[in-house]
Design a binder for these strands. Structure first.
Lengths: 340, 340
DNA sequence: TACGGCAAGGAAAGCGGTTTCCCGAGCGCT
DNA sequence: AGCGCTCGGGAAACCGCTTTCCTTGCCGTA
């Protein structure tokens, strides 16, 4: 591999001069030498060693994001927003998939710390288990102490740094309110993984909306699943088996709602005539489902962008918080209950 | 930031010894010192500087992949396969989104080169424009000369390195054959971007199948789009406007097929009674569409895994090629043409 | 003509690790 | 007792680049 020294030698200058020319120092260099060095670099196919640069330079330039899974449209959209802002700021973005394993998440924090990234964005809900939450928080605090910036998306217990908070509770209320407004009384819930704050928040909002309108939400009408299609389908099936009289299903995210729709179709239930289904997130595919999915929309790309902006902003005294509103998107999967 | 030297000092040993203990050298060290160093590292919250390590060490450890867009399910699935194999091999994977801009693609090759990654995987179809193809190929060759390994997914002109080739042409034949078998004669095609080899191959296979069965494929029955939902919808609409007598639509990928389905729905066309639609890729969502999408399946995760295995395998004399078969998945969006 | 000031380029000191090479101690052997 | 091992540990070179600090040559000025 050609090194800077090789280039310098070939151009007949010192490494110092070559460095100044090739990495745009503010120290002036004569036009004469400049072209010589540039030519030499070209001839030798010189590619600077990022590690050496990073080691010699003071401030880090890359940033990292840890998501549960980029192939999940939820995170894909968030990542798109993060990426856009990072690229605009001239930063390289490292994308890490934790696949929802706290262990791996911790590992990645260490890894990004080791890479001396300027900032870490933690996307995806935090863990409700205080033990794992604290373990990750500890790592992050250490990273911050070493000068790293931290931003999280969603509520994370004990976690330091700035935060972008999708208003999941309000979103849950929106869903509950809408179903009540349509006249539903027996509402089933396919909730997300029991351990996540996102799940808890969405559920809390929903429950509040129902209670305020005199509905009850007994635990036999709640099933927990893993935010993916198949477990959502299973949960929906279980729920319908245990409660054949349900008229509506509030589902914790759109992906699981897809599973719920499939189950309904298999059973010959007409949506929305026999059963209303409402999702959460408003993934791009939601409008193309049949029937088009009524859902609670979160501006995911915008959330990602906001998080990256926070992460790249100079550190503030206290932690900053940006709250993002959820909005209801009415489509074709909800209607008044059947007038039995 | 605590450095290795700090740890060594605190433990009362030389940096050499500390390094040997902390990064698992094969040189034996007494148990006594080992615990002292480990304790010191723990106390100082020591996190090794990856850049320094990479600089000092010989072989690189990370690998990179350049995809068009991870949020596209097609690439998300491929990435999942890549990720799995990379992680199993203890490698960090850098994911880069080119957003289909050749410029950015070149840039990323340079970036990964600069990071001294062990391998680069180029996912997504190559460019048919010889100029851009050659520009990228040049960069890659240079990377290879410096010891980097290269693997590409899909056909890439002039590109060096190992390749995983989804048999797009065969897939196109499969789609064409199926439509002919069902009795269709006037078949429209929503093709992918005109510049991509993937598009050309799928189209070639399709065309061949039709010709062999005595069908023609005049250019007015072909519309090019960008592999995304909305442009697919537009292309389908244009096609139906220009050829109201079409009985089937072969679409270049599932994402565009979603758009085509939406257009058909808007126009009150019954699928598959009035119009058959066949997709390509078999994205996870395909089975959940209504009607469930008949499509040509590519084992995307497996393709990603194969590419990473090639990239991590020791270099061979000649370039290796793995061809991956496409298979037809019959679902509900295709049927015999209406018996007018 | 002599001198200060300034600008361009080079020498060299790191950045934070790894690894080669060397040294000294302890051992078994003749 | 003297010899040559092996074996654990440290000194120092080095990875490739940036940057501070210093040198040198040139200009304008008195």
């Amino acid at each position: 591999m050609a090194t800077l020294t090789d280039v310098a030698r070939r151009a007949g200058v010192s490494p110092a001069t070559a460095s100044r020319i090739l990495s745009g120092s503010n120290k002036p260099v004569s036009e004469h030498l400049r072209t010589r060095v540039l030519l030499a670099a070209e001839a030798l196919q010189y590619v600077p060693n990022v590690h050496a640069q990073q080691l010699a330079r003071a401030q880090p330039t890359a940033v990292g994001v840890i998501v549960h899974d980029v192939s999940d449209p939820y995170f894909a959209e968030i990542t798109r927003g993060l990426q856009r802002v990072a690229t605009d700021a001239g930063r390289l973005l490292f994308i890490c998939n934790s696949y929802r394993e706290p262990e791996r998440e911790r590992e990645y924090v260490g890894l990004l710390h080791g890479h001396r990234t300027a900032a870490i964005v933690l996307a995806g809900s935090g863990h409700r288990d205080p033990k794992t939450a604290r373990a990750i928080a500890t790592r992050l605090k250490q990273y911050q102490k070493d000068g790293g910036r931290v931003a999280v998306i969603g509520r994370h217990l004990h976690t330091p740094g700035d935060a972008v908070l999708p208003d999941n509770e309000q979103g849950g209320r929106l869903a509950g309110t809408e179903l009540c407004r349509l006249g539903h009384h027996r509402i089933g819930v396919v909730a997300g993984p029991a351990g996540l704050t996102t799940t808890a928040d969405r559920l809390a909002g929903l429950r509040q909306a129902l209670r305020e309108r005199g509905r009850t939400l007994p635990s036999k009408r709640i099933a927990y699943a893993d935010f993916d299609r198949d477990s959502g389908a299973r949960a929906a099936a279980d729920l319908l088996d245990a409660n054949p009289d349900l008229t509506a299903l509030a589902v914790g995210n759109d992906t699981m709602a897809i599973g719920a729709l499939a189950v309904a179709r298999e059973r010959g239930l007409k949506i929305p005539e026999d059963l209303s289904i409402i999702g959460f997130d408003d993934m791009p595919i939601a409008r193309d489902l049949v029937p088009a999915l009524t859902t609670v929309r979160l501006p995911l790309t915008e959330i990602g962008a906001a998080a990256m902006r926070l992460a790249l902003a100079p550190p503030s005294d206290g932690p900053r918080t940006v709250t993002v509103e959820a909005t209801l998107i009415r489509r074709a999967s909800t209607a008044p209950p059947p007038t039995a």
